Simulated scan of single mutants.
Amino acid sequence: MYATLSARPQFNPTSGENANGVLQGMDMGKAAAKPASAVESRDLLKGQKAVEILHNGCIYRLQNTKLGKLILTK
Rank of each mutant, 00 (worst) to 15 (best):
N18T: 06
L62P: 00
G16T: 00
L54I: 10
N20T: 09
Q10T: 06
I53A: 02
Q63C: 12
S37W: 05
M28Y: 04
Q24A: 10
C58H: 14
T73L: 13
Q63I: 07
E17Y: 14
N20C: 08
K34L: 14
Q10H: 08
G25R: 11
A33L: 08
M1C: 09
R42V: 06
Y60K: 06
L23N: 07
A50G: 04
N18K: 04
T73S: 15
A3W: 08
L5V: 08
M28V: 07
G47K: 03
L44Q: 01
I71M: 13
K49G: 00
N18C: 15
T4K: 13
K49L: 08
K74T: 00
M26W: 01
L23Q: 07
G68F: 09
L5Y: 00
P35C: 07
R42S: 15
S37C: 07
A33V: 01
H55E: 03
G57S: 05
L70E: 02
A38D: 01
H55C: 09
S37L: 13
L70G: 00
Y2Q: 13
A36K: 11
G29T: 15
K46V: 10
I53Y: 04
T4F: 13
V22S: 07
K74N: 08
L23Y: 04
L23W: 05
V22K: 08
T73P: 04
T14W: 11
A32V: 06
M1G: 14
A7H: 09
V39R: 04
N20V: 11
N64A: 13
K46Y: 02
P35R: 07
G57E: 01
M28C: 10
T65M: 03
Q48T: 08
Q24C: 03
K46I: 02
A38G: 00
K74W: 05
